Computed example of a mutant assay.
Amino acid sequence: MSAVLPIREVEKPWGRDALPAPFTAREGKRIGEIWFEPPPALPQLLVKYIFTSEALSVQVHPSDAETLAKGLGRQGKEECWLIVSAEPDAKLGIGFRDKYDADMLRKAALDGSIEQLMQWHAVRPGDFFYIPAGTVHAIGAGVGLIEVQQNSDITYRLYDYGRPRELHLDEGMAVAKGEPYQDQYHMHVPDRDDVTLVEGPLFRLDQIEGLPNEDVALRYGAGSFLVIPTRGEARIGSEAIRPGSGGLAARFDDVAFDENGACLIAQPVGA
């Protein structure tokens, strides 16, 4: 079985017809997402690139506990974003400027004023945001990012700028946290440094600059993990994994990292 993950290009009305290298969009296609298909050996995580030319909907995701309580199984969704490109006015909406109850949020979602209640963050390459379940969020126009998430497709759309798509206000208000985003979930990641970006409770994510240190090898050595090069290449067995692609490693010793490269590596943790 190949270590290289299959790629799926997903067309979106808010996507782009011109993508940054190494990606290319076929003529007439507006590509918004590029997925690395989760392998059967590691189905818990989904990694994708997202490229926006328009703002995405204001939305929220439930937690595992909430989906289990509804009989939907373990379908919660926590995610994180690493910004890889940003136009000068690019921004993300995450959380709110103040505390609001569900009735206020429902009213704001219906009349569109929820945009003004949200906390908007100007972004640049290297900015990193963890998005816990229940956090109301929106990706603005002119953003390119890598998203690492629980592999779930449950999204509750609260506001969509007048687009003719279904909203999920009852479900969304039941899980949305009407509160400011916590600073602890946001950092700026140096381009050339080893950084632990996420350490549980659902998954771990590290940026490796060059060859990994012993601590990273110990933490990831217990099971399969995903490799996403951002500069240079990594080799899993005999296969090269380059920027724009991703791979699955069964063991840490199976990966040869580029001493002049950089990678993200991700692994689920817990049950």
Rank of each mutant, 00 (worst) to 15 (best):
V123Q: 03
R124L: 08
G126W: 10
Y130H: 11
P132E: 07
G134V: 07
T135H: 02
V136M: 14
V136N: 11
V136A: 15
H137Y: 09
H137I: 08
H137W: 09
A138C: 14
A138I: 10
I139M: 10
I139K: 08
A141N: 11
G142W: 15
G142K: 14
V143F: 13
G144Y: 15
L145H: 05
L145S: 02
I146L: 10
I146Q: 01
V148I: 15
V148G: 13
Q150K: 15
Q150T: 09
N151I: 06
D153G: 10
I154A: 11
I154T: 15
T155F: 05
T155Q: 06
R157K: 14
L158R: 01
Y159A: 06
Y161F: 13
Y161T: 00
R163H: 14
R165F: 12
E166F: 03
E166S: 13
L167K: 14
H168M: 06
H168I: 05
L169M: 05
L169I: 11
D170E: 15
E171N: 13
E171L: 14
G172C: 05
A174V: 03
A174Y: 03
V175Y: 02
A176Y: 00
A176G: 02
K177D: 03
G178I: 04
G178F: 01
E179H: 12
P180K: 03
Y181A: 01
Q182D: 09
Q184Y: 03
Y185F: 15
Y185M: 01
H186D: 02
H186V: 02
M187Q: 10
H188R: 14
H188L: 07
H188W: 12
V189L: 07
V189W: 03
P190Y: 08
P190V: 07
D194R: 11
V195Q: 07
V195M: 04
V195D: 01
T196G: 00
L197N: 06
L197K: 06
V198P: 03
E199F: 06
E199I: 04
E199L: 11
E199M: 10
G200R: 08
P201G: 12
P201C: 13
P201M: 12
P201K: 13
L202A: 08
R204S: 15
L205R: 04
L205D: 04
D206P: 02
Q207C: 01
Q207V: 04
I208A: 10
I208P: 09
I208E: 08
I208Y: 01
E209M: 05
L211Q: 13
L211K: 11
P212W: 14
E214F: 02
A217F: 06
L218S: 14
G221F: 10
A222Q: 15
F225Y: 13
F225Q: 07
F225G: 06
F225P: 05
L226R: 13
L226F: 10
V227A: 12
I228N: 05
P229K: 09
T230A: 00
R231S: 07
E233S: 12
A234D: 07
R235Q: 13
G237V: 01
S238V: 02
S238Y: 04
A240M: 07
R242N: 04
G244V: 11
S245Y: 00
G246Y: 00
G246T: 01
G246K: 04
G246A: 15
L248M: 09
L248Y: 00
R251V: 01
R251W: 02
V255N: 07
V255E: 08
A256E: 12
D258G: 11
E259P: 14
